[in-house]
């Protein structure tokens, strides 16, 4: 890395040269590494620890056209106290909603420590003008969102217009003010692992506080190999720049077993420093109940039926 990172984005050619100069990713090798880590056997005390950690990392999400203030309030109640029968269950990290519901969520979560995250920038496709994206971000921040989950312009990225993607992220970051910016790469549309690595670096150079795999609206959403590559990117970015960036896989993580695989991936790739809700999140909705069910099973030795866990 000969060019200082600040200068990398000074022109389209330096940015392109930098991103294409990153080491390649061998798909077979990356898949094999992720599959090997998925064979780790996490049992007993380690499993208990992992379940509580995973709960505290959940960004409890609802991103439906049919969302209502009532549904968001119910989800916020669950976020603060996931299991009403067991106060020892930690709260989740954040709730994630559309911008128009941020105020509702902020009110419902006041004083709880659970953060409000809002998607913005013409989620999920990102197909709008920069003005609209910045304005939407500013509105969500003004409504009290502590975290903004923006999407990148995949069309521009795939067309090779890295500068456009960079400038949009930088502009949204500026509009975030004190709020944290999570940049959604939508890896399911990036096609190659090389692109995932490049997009990760592009987002980090442009100021992302977190890089996130997916909107959840495109299949495949989060996968272990893609998350592996993003974890390698934040690890390498820290050693190159001294700045630490978080990672958030989102979409398709539904079971405790899946969640634990992600924690193992973090532990053995970026390292245990990232095993903290400040640096790693799981974007999910149905995952939480499975975590609660497994947690209760570990405590009592029995599985309770699904009706013993609230559906919000």
């Amino acid at each position: 890395m000969t060019t200082p990172l600040a200068e990398v984005a000074s022109s389209a050619s330096t940015l392109r040269a930098f991103l294409h100069g990153l080491p390649g990713v061998d798909r077979v090798g990356a898949d094999a590494r992720a599959a090997m880590l998925a064979t780790r056997s996490i049992k007993t005390t380690a499993k208990k620890q992992a379940i509580d950690l995973a709960i505290s990392m959940v960004d409890l999400t609802t991103l439906e056209g049919a969302d209502t203030p009532g549904k968001v309030r119910a989800m916020c109640a669950k976020a603060m106290q996931p299991d009403p029968m067991d106060p020892s269950v930690p709260a989740v990290a954040a709730v994630c909603v559309y911008p128009d519901l941020v105020a509702t969520a902020v009110q419902a979560l006041a004083g709880s420590g659970v953060k409000v995250a809002s998607v913005a920038t013409a989620f999920p496709s990102g197909r709008s003008s920069l003005e609209v994206k910045v304005t939407e971000t500013a509105l969500a921040v003004a409504a009290g969102a502590a975290e903004i989950d923006m999407v990148i312009d995949r069309g521009a990225f795939l067309a090779g217009d890295h500068v456009k993607v960079f400038e949009e992220i930088a502009a949204v970051k500026a509009a975030c003010g004190q709020s944290h910016l999570k940049v959604i790469l939508e890896t399911g549309e990036l096609a190659t692992y090389d692109n995932v690595r490049r997009a990760s670096w592009l987002a980090m150079i442009a100021g992302a506080d977190f890089i996130k795999t997916s909107t959840g609206k495109v299949s495949p959403a989060a996968t272990l190999p893609v998350t592996l590559i993003m974890l390698e990117a934040v690890r390498d970015f820290l050693s190159a720049t001294g700045r630490k960036v978080g990672v958030k896989p989102a979409g398709g993580i539904r079971t405790t077993k899946d969640a634990i695989k992600y924690l193992v991936l973090v532990n053995e790739t970026a390292g245990p420093d990232w095993l903290d809700p400040d640096w790693f999140r799981l974007g999910a909705s149905s995952l939480l109940n499975d975590l609660l069910m497994q947690r209760q099973k570990m405590a009592t030795g029995r599985y309770a039926g699904p009706d013993y866990f609230t559906l919000d």
Binding site: P23, V25, V28, G29
Partner: peptide, 10 residues
Amino acid sequence: DAALDQAVEG
């Protein structure tokens, strides 16, 4: 020009 992370695994 190798894929470094995979080379390390290899």
